[in-house]
């Protein structure tokens, strides 16, 4: 069997924040009626997660569920577990008008951690990242400089960013430039 590798093979750089490529991650796009009962039940049964509120990310035992748009969710799980989860979701949603697709290898995932993580993200995305305006559990689809990306904040204050695999190097370079030593702005401190 072929050896699955992530976009940048786990590169990292340390500056005012630590930027890492997190490696392989399972990602499943779920499209359908998010308000429907079968959808809520399927997510509960398969992942142990609830349907996230608008622009939120809900965590479950087997993975997290992020709100992407009014009819789209993204399930974030272990890379190896994706196919099993898809099979379970498809079984649980049989007869419903839904789409469940494995998009794990279409994307790259980065993590930005450290005290200045907020600042690094704020330099690149047109999003209000002030404490209070953006908090753990929130999910935001936006752009990073010139490419589409999405990010959420973990409980420990670190950010995780997803982007298309084809622009992984671009996004990593952006994050590195934004987190170069000595480039603190101190706006949020």
């Amino acid at each position: 069997m072929s050896n699955v590798v992530s976009a940048l093979n786990g590169v990292s750089q340390s500056g005012i924040a630590l930027v890492e490529e997190t490696g392989l991650r399972g990602m499943i796009t779920v499209r359908g009626d998010l308000a429907s009962k079968p959808m809520a039940k399927a997510l509960k049964d398969v992942l142990g997660a609830s349907v996230p509120e608008q622009r939120q990310i809900a965590s479950g035992e087997k993975g997290a569920v992020a709100w992407m748009s009014p009819d789209e969710l993204l399930v974030i799980c272990d890379h190896g577990a994706a196919e099993d989860i898809i099979a379970s979701l498809n079984a649980a949603l049989a007869g419903e008008h839904v789409l469940v697709v494995n998009v794990s290898d279409a994307r790259a995932v980065f993590k930005v951690s450290g005290e200045c993580a907020r600042e690094v993200i704020a330099k690149l995305a047109p999003v209000d990242l002030a404490p209070g305006a953006f908090e753990p559990g929130m999910m935001r689809r936006t752009r990073f400089a010139q490419v589409a990306a999405a990010f959420w904040m973990n409980d420990d204050g670190s950010f995780e960013i997803i982007c298309f695999r084809s622009v992984a190097r671009y996004v990593f370079d952006l994050l590195c430039v934004a987190s170069v030593d000595g480039s603190e702005v101190g706006f949020f401190n």
């Binding site: 608008q54 622009r55 748009s69 009014p70 047109p126 935001r140 689809r141 936006t142 752009r143």
Partner: peptide
Amino acid sequence: PYCGVWAEETEL
């Protein structure tokens, strides 16, 4: 009106 985000022009 769909995701509630106050998006600036460059995101649109």
